[in-house]
């Protein structure tokens, strides 16, 4: 894992910090330099609530290198309540309990470890909503 490659993404990884387009008002995640909707520069940070619902999901039994210890794990497209779709793992849920439309909330969990001596990478995942606060 590239140290700098992951480090520079820490605020968005830990807590879903994206952007809002000053021009068209769209909320953007992942953050980028140009608004994908109106192609104007977009660089104002925006903190997403972390709430959304499952748009689609699948369960992985044959993982890429580095993810073996979590198998089987569920990955999903999550539709955030502010608009964007996000690709992320679901956690604290059995694969058969997942449904399209299920309300989920963001948590920060271990994404992977670079072996026993390497860095631990943390980032957003989603779990079934604990409660309606």
């Amino acid at each position: 894992m590239g140290i700098a490659q992951n480090w520079r993404l820490r605020s968005q990884r830990y807590g879903l910090v994206g952007e809002v387009c000053d021009d068209c008002g769209e909320k953007i995640f992942p953050p980028r330099d140009v608004c994908p909707y109106c192609t104007q520069p977009a660089q104002t940070p925006f903190q997403f609530s972390g709430r959304g619902e499952v748009f689609s999901h699948t369960t992985i039994y044959n993982p890429p290198t580095g993810y073996e210890e979590f198998v089987p794990y569920t990955v999903a497209l999550v539709k955030l309540e502010e608009g964007p779709l996000v690709t992320a793992q679901l956690t604290d849920v059995d694969p058969e309990e997942v449904n399209i439309g299920q309300p989920v909330e963001m948590v920060t969990r271990k994404i992977r470890e670079d072996g026993p001596e390497g860095l631990i990478m943390y980032g957003y995942k989603f779990r079934p909503r604990l409660q309606e606060v």
């Binding site: 830990y14 210890e69 979590f70 793992q89 956690t91 604290d92 948590v107 920060t108 969990r109 271990k110 994404i111 631990i120 943390y122 995942k125 606060v133």
Partner: peptide
């Protein structure tokens, strides 16, 4: 703890609840 949890993830969720 689940396989993706450790003291950091636990501390962080507790901290977020305190801030909420």
């Amino acid at each position: 703890p689940g396989p993706d949890e450790d003291t950091l993830t636990i501390a962080l969720e507790a901290a977020r609840n305190a801030l909420a």
